[in-house]
Design a protein around this nucleic acid. Structure first.
Lengths: 141, 141
DNA sequence: ATAGGTGCAAATGGTTTGCGAAAAC
DNA sequence: GTTTTCGCAAACCATTTGCACCTAT
């Protein structure tokens, strides 16, 4: 188990406890797009004593230290994912709920341009697309 | 006062009651980016008997009939605005909360391209940018 | 011994719902 | 006279917080 404490953006160092490690593992395994409730569900499977409060506290901590990203997909769900290299965005199917990740230089360029045009320093860019995938589009009729 | 009932995407026609009219007026006057709480606050000023439930029910109705758009800005706030011509997106300042609207052909193009590449029929595209405006960027130090 | 982390239960805040009364058709 | 809408209060759900206990320095 990791023993050291870390210091990123966060003011104070923090300990990697067994609970936090478990939650990190779950986020790692999930890869992407997992919400708090599901994190709790899976954590609870492996450690029935863990509390939902701990899950929320950990997610907040990880978010603040920059370990994970928080995103909003679809209607209202709030999802978390381990931070990765390379911006990517999401396309969510209203039919089957499938989530497709998209990336590419155009998004970056677009953000850069908007930044310049509006004299803004952009710290977070989120493009969220909803629609229907090929299969669901056909089923619609 | 409008008296007719309307029929857009929504299955059943619905009446334009005084409450709904009031809420529509408020949305109209606000122009954009107003959340449920603020709609209620203003509605309550003019008609102290109106209930928050009516506000939520009306917002949902308007959204479903396509009269207004629901968007998520910044952290978690859910905002509403009368539907307008021309896509536009939002840039929100984490410092002062100011919201800048941006538009332009590049966003459209980007969405079109992603649509093609992923064989998706996109029904809703939302680009949400967070950052710091010029003034707040300087104040930061 | 002290600071930080956890579990529990209660609090919070935003949104929705059940229901009887009122209004619209 | 039916159907829809409203106001109210209660319910709901996700998230946060206060607090006593626990754990690792």
């Amino acid at each position: 188990m990791l023993r050291m404490s870390r210091n990123l953006n966060y003011a104070k160092p923090w300990a990697v406890t067994t609970q936090r490690e478990l939650i990190l593992d779950i986020l790692q395994e999930a890869g992407a797009h997992i919400d708090a409730k599901e994190v709790y569900r899976r954590a609870n499977e492996r450690d029935p004593r863990i509390s939902i409060a701990t899950v929320y506290r950990s997610l907040r901590l990880f978010k603040e230290t920059g370990l994970i990203d928080e995103r909003r997909l679809g209607q209202m769900r709030c999802c978390y994912e381990i931070k990765r290299r390379g911006e990517h965005h999401h396309l969510i199917c209203r039919g089957c709920g499938r989530i497709v990740e998209v990336e590419g230089p155009l998004i970056q360029q677009l953000v850069m341009q908007l930044q310049r045009e509006n004299r803004f320093h952009v710290t977070k860019a989120e493009l969220c697309l909803e629609g229907y995938c090929e299969a669901c589009e056909e089923n619609q009729r």
